[in-house]
Structure formats: C-alpha cells, structure tokens
Design a protein around this nucleic acid. Structure first.
Length: 270
DNA sequence: CCGTTGCCCTGCCAGC
DNA sequence: TGCTGGCAGGGCAACG
C-alpha cells in the first residue's frame, strides 16, 4: 500500500528516470482511471508536454509539467507507476501508458483499479483537502499537540486523517504508535504533552527510516524501477499477529479501529 | 464541525 | 481438489 515513504521513493525514482522527457503519446486503456477537467481531453492535453520534475504531496506522486499543469497520481492500495527503459517487458494490466522521448515508457497499472491519474490545470489548487506534511517544517511538536487537543477521536484514527496530516497510512500509524509506546485507541486529548511529543518524534522517525529502506513491500508495492522496498523486514507490529513484541515479548494483538486492522502490543503500549 | 457508514474492486485464503 | 464467502483497504460521498 503506497503511503508517504512509498510515494516518496517512487517520486524520486521517476524524477531520476523521466524528468526532462517529453510526452509523445498517451494510451488510455481504462477511462475509469483517468480524470481531467470538463472539456479537456486527458490524452491530447498531455501530448507534447515536458515533464519538468516529479515530486510528492501526501501519498500522491505529482508530475510537474512545463505548461504549469500537473499530473497527480493517487496510487491507493495497489497502484503502480513504472518507468521502463527501452527493451524492458511491458507492465501487465496497464491502465495508462505514456510514451516518452528517449524511447522510455511510463506505465500506470492497478489491479484493484482504485488508483487515479488526475490532470490539474495550471494554477488550480488540488490539495486543499490535504493537511500538513509530516516531514515538512509545518509539522512541529506544538502543531501536533494542537491537533490532538480537545478531540476524543482515537489517536490512530487521527494519524490516518489526511485532512490533518498527509501521508500516514495504516502501516506507519501502527509502527509509530508502537515506537512511542501509545495504545492506538487512546482518545487524542488524553495524551500528555510528553506522550504527544514522543508520538510526533516517532512519526517523523518511522517515515524517515522507511524512506531510507525504500518503503514496505507487503503485497504489491514496487518502486518506479519495479524493485521492492525492505521496510517490511523491520516491522515491529504491523501484520505480526501473535508474534512476540520486540520490546517486551508479549504477543502482538490485532483489533479494529476506524474499520482498519490495528496491530499493537498490550504489554507496552498504554 | 464532528463522527459514522457504505461503496468502490479483485486477489487471496480459510473453511467446507 | 474445487468452490465460496469474507476480508483487505484509501478516499470520498452521504447522512445524522
């Protein structure tokens, strides 16, 4: 499931592989997975555009185009963005294929078809619903403490709320809560300043470590070159039902919070 | 504003 | 062995 570290890894890989390339043609094989403004044809609008750079916002990969337009890619659970060099085999199940200068291809594929490529017109704000970047300067301890205050929402549900903090998904929410020693169901407002600060620091630390390991490849995720990440090898709690807690040895349990599976340790998360 | 529910979709797997 | 039903999950709309 591409979350912030996976989207960041893909964006960096794409920036290296295809920044500067011109889009020669666009093959839309699944209408459902592309979105364009009214009266704009997705494929013809992109044709001839130069990809200036590739970045990330929250869990979204953003291709900045020469005209000022953006191609915003939401990968959801199973979406893939693969840059292929000449001669490499085609990506199976492709929904959109961009043929680029230098005989390169950029392929978007998604078995569950929840992912979207959205064309955003120049100057149009597309990320108004996204909160602060957890690795940006706006995510201070004080800002985080402010988010938690006065809310009875379980702290894990708050971490997953993209309107407040953009980019944290289920894996990294579980891991950060474990690292900070905080029970996921705790009402946000019940955290002391010390606990909130610990959680803030854990969020930043977990995301940075995950980027360092190029993301978590649990089911489908691969980077822009088709390679797996390795953070799945160092997970402490996520998906580890019944395994011993790396800190206290008690068995990891699974509960449900906000309709999401939640893995945590009853022994050392309070 | 806040919180909850259901839908989208298909691969996988436990259970029969 | 082969089928089936349930589950997984991010974002969004709809609702109270």
């Amino acid at each position: 499931m591409p979350e912030l570290p996976e989207a960041e890894t893909i964006a960096r890989g794409l920036d290296r592989a295809i920044a500067g390339a011109t889009i020669l043609s666009v093959d839309v094989r699944s209408r459902k997975n592309v979105v364009a403004p009214t009266n704009v044809d997705f494929a013809s609008a992109l044709r001839g555009e130069r990809i200036e750079r590739v970045g990330r916002r929250g869990k979204y990969v953003v291709l900045e185009l020469q005209s000022g337009r953006r191609l915003v890619v939401g990968l959801r659970m199973t979406g893939r963005l693969i840059a292929a060099a000449p001669g490499e085999p085609a990506v199976p199940g492709a929904h959109v294929v961009l043929r680029l200068s230098g005989e390169r291809l950029l392929t978007f594929a998604d078995v569950r078809t929840f992912g979207r490529m959205t064309l955003v017109e120049t100057g149009r704000v597309w990320d108004h619903a996204l909160g602060v970047e957890p690795l940006g300067s706006g995510f201070t301890r004080e800002a985080f403490i402010g988010m938690l205050s006065g809310r009875k929402t379980p702290v894990k549900v708050l971490l997953l709320d993209q309107h407040r903090i953009a980019g944290i998904g289920n894996i990294y929410a579980c891991e950060a809560l474990w690292q900070a020693g905080i029970r996921p169901s705790r009402p946000s407002k019940s955290l002391t300043r010390a606990a909130a600060s610990r959680l803030h620091d854990a969020v930043v630390d977990v995301l940075l470590r995950a980027i360092g390991l190029r993301g978590s490849s649990i089911d489908d995720y691969v980077d822009a070159a088709g390679a797996r990440g390795s953070f799945q090898d160092v997970l402490s709690v996520y998906g580890r039902l019944g395994a011993p807690c790396p800190r206290c040895g008690k068995s990891i349990v699974r509960t449900v919070l906000g309709q999401r599976g939640t893995w945590w340790c009853r022994g050392c998360q309070h």
